[in-house]
């Protein structure tokens, strides 16, 4: 198992490296950050200045090595750079430095440290909604199979997987925030409790797809499980239907949900980008859109790095969790 995890981790590292390299080339070679940052009124001298200041006038390979922290780099706001432009230090990924944002005039690391907890709050709340709704309704649908309850739940779930966040989000905003005023019209709030209150609607929006998917998977898994021998044994022992459903069957039917949770990181990341834009939530998703739009290469790199690591970690953790929960699963075989 350790060998398997090591191999998977190595592959995850490879994927992250591939994505980072690809996006770096895309941002710095194909795009023109100077023009995007300074706007159309900037003259050629200003553009050249910008490029020099951020080291964009250097060969792409050298820029990349500097970003990684293998060769010395240019860092505009470091005090050393201002006092003695000739002196350069190492300031790349290897040193834990994500570089300097073009737009925010501060280290990308700091920007991300402010934004990441907000997106995590959104993600954790969304995951909570997904699991709560998905598992409950999935089990109910299986328990009352082929009744009106099952049909209603599954119909709703099917609609749920066909409702994109950019449709539900604005409609929730319109109805629940604008018309009824139950929820704030976007934004982040001022204190911790307020943050959670502001996060409820976007988190629910984000959770619809996942909840619907989990409910569907949970139902079919439960139906399968309820057929197995040990359930019949439990019933024969005289245990109540409720105990058998929730404690015996539901527990085993949860396994695929764990795998799905890991895989759903990609969906949560994509969802966060859209949902945060709709609800003006100042997290990683809206940062991603802003920085891509402004071709703020260092920030884009930082965001892509964080998102890729999240997705990889999600996949890996799901594999490990399934192996830990199900003794029949042997990793690496």
């Amino acid at each position: 198992m350790i060998a398997y995890i090591a191999r998977r981790a190595l592959f995850a590292l490879f994927v992250v490296a591939a994505v980072v390299t690809g996006v770096f080339a895309l941002m710095n070679a194909v795009g023109d950050p100077a023009a995007a940052t300074l706007g159309p009124s900037a003259g050629p001298e200003q553009l050249a200045d910008f490029n020099k200041k951020h080291g964009l006038d250097q060969p792409l390979a050298q820029q990349f090595l500097a970003y990684l922290g293998v060769v010395r780099c240019v860092r505009p706001s470091s005090p050393r750079w201002h006092t003695d432009p000739g002196q350069r230090g190492y300031c790349g990924l290897l040193q834990g430095d994500l570089g300097e944002s073009f737009g925010h005039q501060e280290p990308v690391g700091n920007v991300i440290l402010t934004r990441l907890p907000r997106t995590l709050l959104l993600g954790v709340l969304a995951l909570g909604f997904e699991l709560l709704l998905g598992i409950t309704f999935g089990v109910l649908a299986a328990r009352f199979r082929n009744t009106w309850l099952d049909t209603t739940i599954m119909g709703t779930a099917f609609l749920g997987i066909s409702l994109p966040t950019y449709v539900t989000g604005p409609i929730f905003l319109l109805v629940l925030a604008f018309w009824y005023g139950w929820f704030p019209v976007g934004g982040y709030g001022v204190d911790p409790l307020d943050h959670v209150y502001h996060a409820l609607l976007p988190a629910f929006t984000l959770a619809i797809f996942g909840a619907a998917t989990y409910a569907r998977v949970m139902r079919s898994e439960m139906i399968e499980t309820l057929r197995s021998d040990y359930i019949r044994t439990a019933r024969a022992k005289g245990l109540s239907t409720r105990t058998v459903t929730w404690q015996h069957a539901a527990r085993n039917a949860l396994l695929p949900i764990v795998t799905l949770m890991g895989l759903s990181m990609t969906i949560l990341v994509a969802g966060a980008i859209i949902t945060e834009t709709i609800f003006a939530w100042p997290g990683m998703g809206s940062l991603a859109i802003q920085s891509i739009y402004n071709l703020d290469a260092p920030t884009v790199m930082g965001v892509v790095l964080v998102f890729s690591v999240t997705v990889q970690a999600g996949n890996l953790l799901a594999d490990i969790a399934v192996a830990a929960l199900d003794p029949r699963v042997r990793l690496g075989s």
Binding site: V15, V269, A270, L295
Partner: peptide
């Protein structure tokens, strides 16, 4: 396929579309 499946799809698509 493994690499493509585990990249943040939308992010990459947006980035490519933007620099075009």
């Amino acid at each position: 396929v493994d690499v493509l499946l585990s990249t943040p799809f939308l992010l990459i698509a947006i980035a490519i579309q933007r620099v075009w």
